[in-house]
């Protein structure tokens, strides 16, 4: 990474949790423009809490988060909506929205007081539909979609919001292997082709190792962060799960059951 590249997210000595309970502490990482980064770790270690904190949906406990060289807290919510977009595990409240309507809601930070879409907004919505292979589904309602399709719609909405940073909470849960790979490849393409910084939590460590530029391992102690191969060399994945149950194969970059 050259030093001319912009830091989109910078977290230093960050502690997240729900006052007064600390869920995860000593988190340090920095992401540049166009980085695809996975947050991995065992259940309950604070992946989602970290993501929600980065998204400004809950306050941090201590440390600092910088988004585009300004403190996260210094952004007004309308300003922040142009810096980062989110895809959450929760389903949209109304599943009666059509795909096109839902994606168009991503344009809200840019539209006027009543939400009229201008040419630029329509272009962005169309681009999102195309990028996430949703053109045939654009008039379907969300309750008619499969899990994989709905997930693509939610990510397309985040893309339509056109922010430098996109945060996703477990975008591949409930999906079969094919759709997991499909989602992650679409994310990779979005990051590299459109120069978006994308951070997502996942349990698919094998896939993350193959596709991501950076990985943040939340292990409840030192929380290592780096490129997948560096982390493999430093044997961080071996320590993620108890060795009597799961073994990490450094050659293939995958986990095996310890028989």
């Amino acid at each position: 990474m050259s030093s001319t590249e912009k830091h989109i997210v910078l977290a230093e000595n960050l502690t997240v949790g729900y006052t007064p309970k600390v869920v995860s502490e000593k988190i340090d990482f920095q992401l540049n423009q166009g980085d695809l980064c996975a947050i991995v770790g065992v259940n309950g270690v604070g992946k989602s809490t970290l993501l929600r904190t980065l998204a400004g949906l809950q306050p941090k406990l201590s440390g600092s988060i910088q988004i585009n060289d300004s403190n996260l807290e210094s952004y007004a919510s309308s300003k922040l909506a142009k810096e980062l977009s989110v895809v959450l595990t929760e389903q949209p409240a109304s599943k009666n929205l059509t795909v096109q309507e839902l994606i168009a809601l991503g344009r809200q930070p840019y539209t006027n007081w009543i939400g009229t879409l201008n040419e630029e907004d329509k272009k962005q919505v169309q681009e999102s539909l195309t990028s996430f292979l949703l053109e045939d589904l654009q008039y379907s309602r969300c309750h008619e979609l499969s899990d994989g399709q709905l997930q693509r719609v939610l990510i397309a909405r985040a893309m339509a919001q056109n922010t430098p940073l996109i945060l996703l909470d477990e975008p591949t849960t409930h999906l079969d292997l094919y759709h997991k790979v499909q989602i992650l490849k679409l994310l990779q393409e979005l990051a590299h082709r459109k120069q978006k910084t994308i951070m997502f939590t996942t349990h698919e460590i094998d896939l993350a190792i193959q596709l991501c530029d950076k990985i943040l391992i939340l292990d409840g102690a030192e929380n290592p962060f780096g490129a997948p191969c560096e982390l493999i060399e430093q044997k961080h994945f071996e320590r993620l799960f108890p060795a009597e149950m799961v073994l990490f194969d450094a050659k293939t970059g995958s986990f095996k059951v310890n028989k």
Binding site: S77, A81, L88, E90, P92, A93, L97, L105, Q108
Partner: peptide, 22 residues
């Protein structure tokens, strides 16, 4: 005057907040 916010609420409160709705 709440039309835009009401539309955002269709996604749920967290999404509405992430769209800049107070």
């Amino acid at each position: 005057i709440s039309i835009k916010r009401l539309n955002a609420f269709l996604l749920g409160e967290n999404y509405a907040q992430s769209l800049g709705v107070s």
